[in-house]
Design a protein around this nucleic acid. Structure first.
Lengths: 151, 151
DNA sequence: TATTGTTATACTCTATAACTATA
DNA sequence: TATAGTTATAGAGTATAACAATA
């Protein structure tokens, strides 16, 4: 016999449903941590990639983030408004603009990533280090086949 | 030394970022599977709980789903419009309405859960049965402390 | 006073389509 | 023809605030 409260509820057996619920918990903690003034998770993700891989164009970045070019415009406007990056002309192609992090951007990235890791560790205290590693590995395993590097 | 392409990219080490990316992949597959006419994931989640725990009130259900009562109204309207449930007066409390699944609702639930499991298995073929079980267990472990049953 | 269901409203995130300037 | 960045627009999904009816 299966445990009534878990297995007989088929919804609870779906990965999608559990992914969503867990994602909402982590997302809410992120927002609570950084508040209104802080960067949203998607803005921070964009800044991270710009810092980690400078000189990407907006099209490159939108592909890496898995969103449309049009949706990226507001994100880049936000980061430029904060003084975290600049749109810089690309020598070979006058259509494109490279995204170059400023010193303030690099510093904000370093601060935010540290703070996020710290809060994530506190939030996910119910998981051991090994379990967090397992979870990360499993999530990446899902992602990889869908992010075959085109760029 | 750490592997350059993984560990040096701090963003990739965040559980929140990986949760989001994996969630989007599964969510997109769900939508592609059921299309425009089909129930959205949140509508299906609501129907699932109504079928699995009949006679819940809307307030009960909104707590179980982790959303506001106001947001549930459109979801219940949708399900009632499809003929999958009815709002039924509760004998003891004239403010509340119990959510009772119809036969069509029960049948739609059974069909949809089966189809979802099937598509999830196909989508997540890169994970072994054991890994899928691990992932499910880890995600639930995150959820549990935040869903201390109040109702 | 508190709760239930509801409406009105606003905000975030995202997608599609169309435009311009380049290639 | 195709691509880069942009704008306009629309649609989910969600939250907050207020309300009437009832507890």
């Amino acid at each position: 016999m299966e445990k009534l409260d878990e297995v007989s509820f088929a919804l609870e057996g779906l990965i999608g449903y559990n992914l969503k619920r867990a994602y909402v918990i982590v997302q809410n903690d992120y927002r609570a941590t950084f508040g209104e003034e802080g960067m949203s998770a998607r803005v921070f993700a964009a800044l991270s990639i710009v810092v980690e891989m400078p000189e990407l164009t907006q099209s490159d970045l939108s592909r890496r983030l898995g969103i449309e070019r049009s949706g990226l415009v507001a994100i880049i406007d936000n980061l430029e408004g904060r003084g975290y990056l600049r749109r810089v002309a690309v020598p070979g192609d006058r259509r494109a603009q490279a995204l170059v992090p400023t010193d303030a951007g690099k510093s904000a990235y370093a601060d935010t990533i540290a703070k996020t890791k710290e809060h994530e560790a506190k939030l996910l205290h119910m998981l051991s280090d090994e379990e967090r590693g397992q979870l990360l590995a499993l999530l990446k395993k899902i992602r990889v086949p869908f992010e075959s590097r085109k760029s």
